[in-house]
């Protein structure tokens, strides 16, 4: 792949999805985009780039989706879900006793394992939640993973990664070779397509935000901007949960880590200056999609 083509794709991906590729990821682009190019009847990455330069918008979203990493599994890293059961929910049950409603956002839900892990955790505590309204909003950039999440169909391999067998028996049905999560659990999760680079203030206010294993792909400024905008739509006593390799420390002071609760953060009360998405992102939003 020639340098101008690589730089074009790098910039396109950064603008469209936030993906921050270092200068030496040509192989990654080739392995993911060559199959896509071939499917579109194009012989090479160069031809693909030419088409993109001509402004084919369906191809742009295909390229962006092909470059996302969708790796996920049920109860990933376990600890965040222990936090959810042992700390987040007990605190919110007290704090929201009058309102009796809780809103949870999974900000990069991929194929649904994360929101459904939360939904099953809620089912497991349904006695305490009688008469409560709990919403789970699951969003992702990629339409493809959202469709899979909505269907709630998983392979035998997927249901054996992180999902305790008791929960499989309780909340899934066999569908041929696959396993489908029961419709009452599916019904607890609302799906929406959403790019974190764009404005998301219309989602409303949340008590809990799971934003895991997505910001790691973004550059610093983008992370800081997104943290700032997430903080703005959170209740002051809400909870933010990040991935195992992620932190706000050294990036922003709008959230503060909780002692002894790895990966768990609360709004600090300090208001971010990030009012809007970064200019690059909003320009793209206006031009594309």
């Amino acid at each position: 792949m020639n340098q101008p083509d690589y730089e074009f794709l790098r910039k396109l991906l950064r603008d469209k999805s936030g993906l921050d590729l270092s200068a030496d990821k040509q192989y990654l682009i080739e392995s993911r985009l060559l199959p896509l190019a071939r499917k579109a009847g194009l012989a090479s990455i160069s031809d693909l780039v030419q088409k993109l330069r001509d402004g084919s918008s369906t191809l742009v979203s295909q390229v962006v989706e092909a470059m996302t990493t969708n790796e996920t599994f049920f109860f990933r890293d376990k600890v965040p879900f222990d936090h959810f059961r042992e700390m987040i929910m007990p605190e919110l049950l007290k704090a929201r006793a009058n309102r009796r409603s809780i809103r949870i956002w999974c900000a990069a839900c991929s194929t649904g394992q994360e929101p459904y892990s939360l939904a099953m955790s809620l089912k497991e505590m349904s006695a305490a939640l009688a008469g409560w309204r709990v919403e789970i909003i699951a969003t992702d950039l990629s339409q493809e993973v959202l469709e899979k999440s909505k269907a709630g169909l998983y392979s035998q391999f997927e249901v054996q990664r992180g999902l305790p067998i008791q929960l499989l028996v309780k909340y899934f049905k066999q569908a041929g070779e696959l396993w489908q999560i029961n419709s009452d659990v599916r019904g607890m999760v609302q799906h929406r397509q959403l790019n974190l680079l764009h404005d998301f203030s219309q989602l409303g206010t949340f008590d809990v935000v799971f934003c895991r294993n997505v910001l790691i792909y973004f550059d610093q400024d983008t992370k800081i901007n997104i943290f700032g905008r997430i903080a703005k739509l959170m209740e002051p006593d809400g909870f933010l949960v990040l991935g195992a390799a992620e932190t706000v420390v050294g990036l922003t002071d709008v959230f503060k880590p909780l002692a002894d609760r790895r990966g768990l953060y609360r709004p600090s009360g300090i208001v971010s200056t990030a009012k809007a998405p970064l200019p690059g992102a909003s320009r793209v939003a206006a031009a594309g999609n």
Partner: peptide
């Protein structure tokens, strides 16, 4: 890991 026979593997990133 589920039944506590081994500790969680160190968290790998996606």
């Amino acid at each position: 890991q589920e039944v506590g026979l081994i500790q969680a593997l160190s968290a790998e990133s996606a």
